[in-house]
Write a protein that binds this DNA or RNA. Structure first.
Length: 261
DNA sequence: TTAATTACCTGAGAGC
DNA sequence: TGCTCTCAGGTAATTA
């Protein structure tokens, strides 16, 4: 499931391989996958950006892609036969095509004249690795939030790009109980949480993301961060304690009741 | 305003 | 073998 580091790996691949290519056509293979006018002359891809978990292709219009759960972008030869989970196809003016492959069909492609007019992007919080994600910002943002800190970290309007895997890992490294109300965190815990968020993101980006079952980069390669996971889908903590598994915000939370307070 | 729940999706695996 | 049920989770919409 692509979170910020996985999306970053895809964006780097796109920057290297599709900038300068002209989009001849963009076709959806099933309804509702593409939102906006895909019939217009999209022209050449001038740049590829990332904001949170959104991939943004800058051409004559902005093509905003969200991979959601199982989405993948694969750059292949035009003659390659597409498997049944390909939901949309970008044809280029050379011998390549870009496949939007998504088993669960949750992913979306949105076309806008300006990506900044797209409301979900407007509402995104700061990037975790930017300077504006800092103690002052975060403390103010959560001062009245009673929801569990895990849920707050998943809130894209508070911080952009975190998903279930990394929030589990970040809270374990920061030794914070995921059930703890956000406004009950002590100053020191908040500082640790911010620095571990940045550390985990940096390490995961360097490793090319995390592959649990689906994630692949542009060339179909897996990430490497899954080897560094300490709690997500684990039986035991490094301290020897059995990992506790609960449900929060409809998702599985893994934590060590001994290390995380 | 905030928090919690549900719909959207389909493959994998468990249980019968 | 084949059926049903549950689970995986990011986001938007809905409800409390």
């Amino acid at each position: 499931m692509p979170e910020l580091p996985e999306v970053e790996a895809v964006v780097k691949g796109l920057q290297k391989n599709v900038i300068g290519k002209k989009i001849v056509s963009l076709k959806a293979k099933r309804p509702k996958i593409i939102v906006g006018d895909a019939e217009q002359d999209l022209g050449k891809i001038r740049n590829v950006l990332r904001r949170g978990k959104y991939i943004i292709l800058e051409a004559n219009a902005f093509i905003i892609i969200h991979l959601r759960m199982t989405g993948k972008l694969l750059l292949v030869d035009r003659k390659i036969k597409e498997r049944k989970y390909v939901r949309a196809v970008f044809l280029f003016d050379d011998d390549k095509k870009l496949l939007f492959d998504d088993v669960r069909a949750f992913g979306r492609i949105v076309i806008k004249q300006d990506y900044q007019e797209y409301l979900p992007i407007q509402k995104l919080g700061p990037e975790p690795l930017f300077k504006n994600f800092n103690f002052d910002y975060f403390a103010k943002k959560i001062e009245n939030r009673k929801a569990p800190i895990k849920n707050i970290l998943l809130d894209q309007t508070v911080i952009a790009g975190l998903g279930n895997i990394y929030t589990n890992e970040i809270l374990h490294r920061a030794q914070i109980d995921p059930r703890k109300s956000a406004n009950k965190l002590k100053k020191k815990q908040l500082q640790t949480l911010i620095s571990e968020t940045k550390n985990v993101m940096k390490e995961a980006i360097t490793a090319g993301g995390t592959t649990i079952s689906d994630f692949r980069d542009l060339s179909g390669k897996s990430g490497g961060f899954q080897k560094k996971l300490e709690v997500y889908q684990k039986e035991f903590c490094v301290c020897g304690e059995k990992i506790t598994r609960i449900k929060q915000a409809g998702r599985s939370t893994f934590f060590c009741a001994k290390c995380q307070k």
